[in-house]
Design a protein around this nucleic acid. Structure first.
Lengths: 351, 351
DNA sequence: CTGAAAGCGCTAACAG
DNA sequence: CTGTTAGCGCTTTCAG
């Protein structure tokens, strides 16, 4: 039985120190420190005794003091923008337990692309041991700052070429290639693309793979069947698809640079009475939860989020631990998830 | 022009201290401290000089040291579970700038309802000045911990009765009442509810308001038209609605305890060929982005997120500042947003 | 294996 | 207004 919350005693400001524990246990403060810093060098019997007393007193090492002494905070910062895209909350949720396993606290900086100051301040103040960036671009000032600071940093999801950093991405280019092949080999005639700003490497590479493969197949993407949006929102996808569907000869297949755009596109088709998949095929990218929802039933490319998060965590942990391995890019493969928006048509054999 | 990222010099580990600045500026270390702690008491001319030198050296006060001395960390913790519900990322994004304005850093603990340890550890270690909980229930161990610790805490969104804490919620009960009135006064005959676990106050109160109002109108909610889900997912909403729609005489209106459930319910209707709003009205709660999407076009109740976040921030800041005002509950009103899932039928006059 | 002692960088009295 | 001084709670030599 737990005591009712209302009845709980406040022990505000009590703050038991290692000194207190030392007195109570009849050892020196240094010994208490050794026990909790897990530095070995303590007789098991003494350690046990200290731990017991500490437990009774409710002692917890003061992280600030420890951080000041060791200049290690035990915290990593995650820089992410646009939490509105469900992909990022998902990555955050995946990352959480992995960081806990690694013994690291995680602070999330949800930055506006235009205002990254809070992240930058924290980096300058060295209040984290390392940084994980999920939405970096070459223009990111937080990225500049963290590189300049020499703090361990790992890029996940988006990468930035030419930087001596650990980077983890999925093979977005192959994803684009795969969709182009899927469309072409299943007889799609008027293939369209809804792309976006080229700053994020993810978008750039999907775009590239898609275009190159279409060109290689002798049916390069037509200019009038290409729509570039300003931002990756549902509304932008909706508007872009509307434009494409209003053409005299509208597309019979659209590849969208990410799922959120594709959901918008799907609704544009719904609005215009264009049937999916009979009149129009639609493919997105990311496999966010909503892609599987009945209303959308969207064929898409799934990035192995769990694997990417694990790799990124391991890399960051190693780097914080002082690894001097030459940093490099890790590229993991991703899968085409076939659903109703392409009539569940199986992936055709290559060649 | 910015230098290319690749060419940047690493100044890792440099760490300029107030001591260094003091030397360079020919003043005492304490004066430097005063300048940066903004404690006044420094001649403007001296302060200016110190600031200039500090700027040249790239000095930044060490937060750890400051925190240790003042036992104020300048950081608040946000406890949130289930980032999968878009409402929470939205609240997080809204909170961010407000915390920045208040001069507070924000760390997000995305806790699994079953594993709140990271939040609890941080609370015990007092590594934050205060805590904001978005998804508290009476069972939350993090809540118990923070109450016990005496740390300033504010509950937002969900509240827990009988606790001497600042709490901010919208009037969920009135929301439920409003929907019941809307259904009844527009001639809905077979009114259903998709509810959920009663632990979150939000769900409990929506439920209560809805039921009470129906009863007051002489048409109490029928048992067989009530479905309780285990969790607030799309899939749960889908399954619950499926069950209701399979009844011999299915409902002609369903109120869902939140939008995510309602989106699932909408898709269940789509799957069964039940037309919305002709055969079935649907109302959700929260007005997440997706509710407005064409595929759903969902009538729902909107909570004033921005206002709630502002109030919660102000309360927390005041509490951290040492306010001893008797804590209490702030209840803000919310709005019915009428969309296609109820045929855009206007809200009938009361009485 | 354990204790004593020296700070990490900063703030906050206390004198001057 | 400014310098001096004494720690915040911890880790880490250095002796014993």
């Amino acid at each position: 039985m737990q005591a009712p919350l209302e009845a709980m005693v406040f022990d505000r400001l009590k703050s038991v120190t290692s000194q207190d524990v030392a007195h109570a246990a009849g050892v020196s403060q240094a010994t208490v420190s050794r026990v909790f810093a897990k530095r070995g060098n303590v007789q098991p019997i003494t350690a046990e005794q200290v731990r017991r007393v500490a437990g009774e007193l409710g002692y917890r090492p003061n992280v600030m003091a420890r951080a000041m002494r060791t200049s290690r905070t035990g915290t990593v910062g995650i820089v992410v923008s646009r939490l509105g895209n469900p992909l990022y909350p998902l990555m955050l949720q995946t990352l959480g337990p992995k960081m806990v396993d690694a013994g690291l606290r995680m602070v999330v900086w949800s930055v506006d692309e235009s205002d990254e100051t809070c992240a930058i301040d924290a980096i300058k103040e060295r209040s984290v041991d390392g940084v994980l960036m999920m939405t970096a671009t070459a223009e990111s000032s937080a990225l500049r700052e963290v590189v300049k600071s020499g703090l361990p940093v790992v890029l996940i999801n988006r990468v930035v070429d030419g930087l001596p950093l650990d980077q983890v991405e999925s093979d977005n280019r192959a994803g684009g290639t795969c969709v182009a092949h899927y469309f072409a080999a299943t007889g799609r005639r008027r293939i369209a693309l809804i792309g976006g700003p080229q700053a994020p490497s993810t978008i750039r590479n999907r775009d590239l793979g898609f275009r190159d493969q279409l060109a290689a197949l002798g049916a390069p993407l037509k200019k009038q069947l290409t729509a570039y949006v300003e931002n990756f929102s549902y509304a932008a996808g909706f508007a872009a698809a509307m434009r494409l569907l209003e053409l005299a000869t509208p597309p019979d297949a659209i590849f969208c640079a990410n799922d959120v755009l594709a959901l918008g596109a799907r609704d544009a088709a719904r609005r215009r009475g264009v049937r999916v998949p009979e009149d129009l095929w639609l493919v997105g990218y990311d496999d966010i939860d909503m892609a599987a929802w009945d209303a959308f039933d969207l064929t898409t490319i799934r990035q192995p989020i769990n694997e990417m998060c694990q790799i990124a965590t391991d890399l960051l942990v190693a780097r914080i631990g002082g690894s001097t391995k030459t940093p490099g890019k890790t590229v993991v493969p991703n899968d085409l998830i076939i659903r109703g928006s392409t009539g569940r048509h199986p992936f055709p054999a290559l060649g």
